[in-house]
């Protein structure tokens, strides 16, 4: 059996969170440049220019892209032929988060108990860790620091199967309309359809990891993504909510089997700083 030291997981998580907070992924840069070209409102167009300039300054490595350096979301695919040695996997991930947010001068944004005390944990832990056991030996880690402005505007509905694609469309568009300027548009819209209550939310979050301009491999979902993108941009919210023709940079749908009585749908919005970064050990 292959062995991976826990320390290597820690070092990888540390490196990825610093990288993600200072360097916007190429797929996001490309859709922002396209948005800047296509935007009709001069004020919103200048917001696009500012976002691209901000990204350039952040990439120099002194100032993170956004002051909200996010909750530390980690997707970890663990090959079942591999064992983590010399430490516990969850602790190793949290130690990586702790080091990244300290060494990278990233904001620590996590409170421990959420209702009464709300005391900052001081090191941005615990991470939100999604582990899948997969065939083979590889250990794949994706980190996605997630800001709260767009997270707060996300929504989930347990629709009736009779609501159909139109029902999903209405819920997605209504969620984006209600969010207005709050999630820092231009946004990426992650949609989950199917699974169950908690599963659909994870699908929506995973949808945000797909390149913003990519399409679902299922033709009918791909068509729905294109239709949603057009209708969301017709809302006129625009960059920073100042009005404009480009509100969303991409709509990504992920789906999964569900119960005969269910049609869960989740909408996870992400700001233009749709940060994610991956590595394999």
């Amino acid at each position: 059996m292959r062995q991976v030291p826990a320390e290597q997981v820690t070092e990888t998580v540390e490196r990825l969170f610093i990288e993600a907070n200072y360097h916007l992924p190429p797929d996001m840069v490309s859709v922002l440049e396209k948005g800047e070209r296509e935007e009709q409102n001069p004020v919103a167009k200048s917001v696009f220019r500012t976002i691209l300039e901000n990204r350039r300054v952040a990439s120099e490595g002194k100032f993170p892209l956004c002051q909200d350096c996010g909750m530390a979301v980690v997707f970890l695919d663990m090959g079942q032929e591999t064992a983590v040695t010399g430490g516990n996997l969850e602790n190793a991930v949290n130690e990586g988060v702790r080091r990244a947010y300290d060494k990278g001068y990233l904001r620590k944004s996590i409170v421990g108990e959420p209702l009464f005390e709300r005391k900052n944990t001081g090191d941005n832990t615990p991470a939100i860790l999604h582990v899948r056991v997969v065939p083979g030996e590889r250990v794949a880690i994706t980190v996605a620091p997630k800001g709260a402005g767009s997270e707060n505007m996300s929504a989930l509905a347990m629709l009736s199967p009779a609501a159909g694609p139109e029902g999903v469309e209405r819920f997605v568009i209504e969620t984006v309309r209600k969010a207005g300027p709050n999630p820092c548009p231009p946004i990426v819209v992650g949609v989950g359809v199917g699974s169950d209550f908690e599963g659909v939310a994870e699908l929506a979050k995973r949808a945000l990891l797909r390149p913003a301009e990519s399409s679902s491999s299922h033709p009918r979902y791909a068509a729905l993504e294109a239709e949603l993108l057009r209708k969301i941009n017709d809302l006129g919210i625009g960059a920073a909510g100042y009005g404009g023709t480009v509100t969303a940079l991409g709509v990504n749908i992920e789906w999964a089997p569900t119960h005969i009585a269910c049609m869960p749908v989740a909408v996870n919005l992400c700001c233009h700083a749709n940060r994610h970064c991956s590595a394999e050990i």
């Binding site: 500012t50 901000n54 956004c66 002051q67 402005g149 207005g180 300027p181 233009h272």
Partner: peptide, 30 residues
């Protein structure tokens, strides 16, 4: 800040002569 304000806040801004200014979200390095 960024985002909409409640009607109560807007009424009080009118009464007290205050303004709400916007900084673009996510250009924090600049």
């Amino acid at each position: 800040g960024k985002g909409e304000r409640s009607e109560d806040v807007v009424s009080s801004m009118k009464k007290n002569g205050a303004v709400y200014l916007g900084a673009t979200g996510g250009i924090a390095a600049l």
